[in-house]
Design a protein around this nucleic acid. Structure first.
Lengths: 231, 231
DNA sequence: TTATCAATCAATCGCATGATTGAATATGAA
DNA sequence: TTCATATTCAATCATGCGATTGATTGATAA
């Protein structure tokens, strides 16, 4: 007869240190467990934001946003600092984007609805031959690749990959006239579920460019500790 | 004035595919957001289990366990199969332990209470010079390291690292008399918050052995797709 | 000081979740 | 078929969470 022992931490003797650990981990997971909070975290992946900016961007009432942010803070996922009248929220740790990525990964593989959403909205994902971080670093140095940042100006200004040009989607048609046709183009945006760079690559290819997509977005780049250019 | 655009998925136009994605991710995160469910997931990291075994191990009422398991299943974290009268639950995906590890990592770095719990219960963590998977693989081949599996017999029987000897904590004193003193010893157990191998390494060192700890436990090894020996 | 603005707090409501109990399925054995 | 066993389902209750509103704190600027 197989017997499974109670515990690896001897909860029998010590009250329950493991219980308390799990309680903490569960609290952190619950902090992740809300649509709006995931949205806020995604925005914070781009960089520090004020409560006001976050509320405006996500279309939530101000007080509501504030409360969600506080839950994220209690959950250890974000941190704050004060700057004049504003309170700036940021991700608490470089490992947070990794946690979100792990969540996405498991969801993409095991939740049918997620698979379907991705299939309908990111169909071309597999066809765009994404460029990895490592490859990009090498090719930027060796091959003179042109790097496009498809995010809105404000986010670009707050930080972008070194040497990237900011081309917002509505500037793309104009850019197509001026971009060099003899060099390969790599586009990126916010990462994960941001389609801006997908669309850019598709449009560029339709116009005859050699274009590819950076596999990840700005937050992952930054979280990996790679150089970021400001202004 | 900085303006942040609404969205990378144009929720303005398309209703809200991103919203639905986040809703799914949030649902998965909520499934992680309960002490008992994390406990169940940890057990399932060792291998398939029946509802009964899980309930017994975690000391929860049967029906309660069943309900938590169903939430985990809805959340895409576990899967089931039927075997005779029993229903066997398992982790749905090799990426699940990675997700749990990411959660632990962020928690260990950002939740003060977790840091404290670890400091008091795993003080020696840093001193035991953990061995990585890669290093272990090499040294098993080259240096004839002795591998100890500190888990209970039942878990050992259900799967263990190739060549590992099963030594439960109460067998350790006896084993100390017979283990070879000229070879290094590496101990492992369930991983993460399982102290069995910590204690073993400490006891072995007190007795003059050269002993180290495998950085991870059995679930991580198995999830990495490495060889597992049964029976 | 006062006025103003950013952000949080407090109170309320409605709804979802977790625990418990007991009944209902479904499978395999007699 | 009938019984026993493993698991799920259904109903209940208490509690906690999320949204909304309006009041409050804290910091800057006039």
């Amino acid at each position: 007869m197989i017997e499974y022992e109670t515990d690896g931490l001897r909860e029998s003797s010590s009250g329950s240190p493991k219980r308390r650990l799990f309680a903490q981990l569960a609290a952190m997971a619950r902090a992740l467990g809300h649509e709006h909070r995931l949205d806020l975290l995604e925005q914070l992946g781009q960089g520090e934001r004020t409560v006001e900016a976050l509320a405006r961007h996500s279309g939530l009432p101000f007080a509501n946003t504030s409360q969600h942010l506080q839950q994220l803070r209690r959950g250890g996922l974000v941190a704050t600092r004060r700057s004049g009248k504003h309170i700036l929220y940021r991700l608490s740790d470089d490992a947070v984007p990794g946690l979100l990525a792990a969540l996405r990964r498991v969801a993409e593989r095991n939740l049918a609805e997620v698979q379907q959403l991705i299939a309908t909205h990111f169909t071309s994902r597999d066809n765009l031959e994404p460029v990895s971080r490592e490859e990009l670093l090498i090719r930027l140095r060796d091959d003179g690749v042109v790097l496009l940042d498809m995010r809105p100006e404000g986010e670009y200004a707050a930080g972008h990959l070194p040497g990237a040009l900011n081309v917002t989607p509505d500037q793309l048609d104009a850019a197509i006239q001026t971009l060099p046709r003899d060099r390969e183009i790599v586009a990126y945006c916010r990462g994960a579920y941001c389609v801006l760079s997908f669309e850019a690559v598709e449009a560029l290819r339709r116009s005859g460019f050699r274009a590819r997509r950076l596999e990840e977005g700005f937050p992952e780049w930054k979280a990996a500790g790679l150089a970021v250019e400001v202004a």
